[in-house]
């Protein structure tokens, strides 16, 4: 659909749904790349952030407050700046140039990891700190060890930690600037069924929406937008389901 043709937004939405239900390979490949990049970045960031949040809550060391300040600052990092820094690191002349990952999904995962690790850490840390001291002391009074206290705290803070991971995933899925710079929004040449430019290499839902909209292909943009919103909504529904079951 070309916006200059005067087609209505409603027609765009209908066409968007048609593209989704026809399982268009271009749309599916973009969705797959988005899930792969954001999912991997979220898993890696979670594996770093939760132990870090516990370490910051249960241990004392020099520079702890400085690290917390750094994490809090990191929660508001501008994606384009992170993208630029990662790009300068992974280009052939950069410190990570030997890895040869510029314009690959690995570089995109690295950029998203840097962006969302402070978010997951910061929100998890707040959730852990909100667990009353009396809960931890109760574990000790019942004969529990420090490990038991950490496990009990994890259970008490679970909803906050789930929220933290979801916030990270949401940020990763919705992010454009960083992955556009380090990933290059690349799709294989050759259009499939007249839609898009072939299969995605480093093109995600967000970067594809940017490029398709700039080309005037609004129906493809709408289809991608619907998938993006559905993904985020599904994750939130799942989280609510887990919380209700507990």
């Amino acid at each position: 659909m070309d916006i200059s043709s005067g087609d209505s937004l409603l027609q765009g939405i209908i066409k968007g749904f048609e593209l989704i239900f026809s399982l268009n390979p271009y749309i599916l490949s973009i969705t797959g790349v988005s899930i792969e990049v954001s999912g991997t970045a979220t898993i890696l960031a979670t594996l770093t952030a939760i132990p870090l949040a516990f370490a910051l809550s249960f241990t004392h060391f020099r520079g702890k407050q400085a690290l917390i300040t750094l994490i809090n600052t990191g929660m508001g990092l501008p994606p384009v700046f992170v993208g630029l820094v990662v790009f300068l690191m992974v280009v052939p002349a950069g410190p990570l140039g030997l890895l040869n990952i510029v314009f690959t999904r690995k570089a995109m995962i690295l950029a998203q990891y840097i962006l969302i690790t402070p978010i997951i850490t910061g929100i998890s840390l707040a959730a852990i700190k909100a667990v009353p001291l009396s809960i931890i002391e109760t574990v000790y009074t019942l004969g529990g060890s420090e490990k038991d206290a950490v496990v009990a705290t994890l259970k008490e803070a679970r909803f906050g930690i789930i929220t933290a991971v979801l916030a990270g995933l949401g940020r990763a899925l919705a992010e454009v600037g960083a992955i556009l710079i380090v990933g290059g929004n690349i799709a294989r040449t050759g259009s499939i069924g007249g839609i898009g430019e072939g299969l995605s290499e480093t093109r995600t839902l967000t970067t594809a929406i940017t490029s398709e909209t700039s080309k005037g292909d609004i129906s493809t943009s709408i289809a991608l937008g619907i998938i993006l919103i559905s993904l985020v909504l599904s994750v939130n529904i799942l989280a609510n389901f887990i919380q209700r079951r507990d």
Binding site: S134, I135, E137, L142, G143, G144, S145, A152, K155, E156
Partner: peptide, 28 residues
Amino acid sequence: MHKMSMLFQRPALFNSSVFNNVAYGLII
């Protein structure tokens, strides 16, 4: 500590079932 227990003025409750709360000392 395994041979003693202490109750506080205000009970601290784990966000779980009564069974899981009471079972805690046995589970660990």
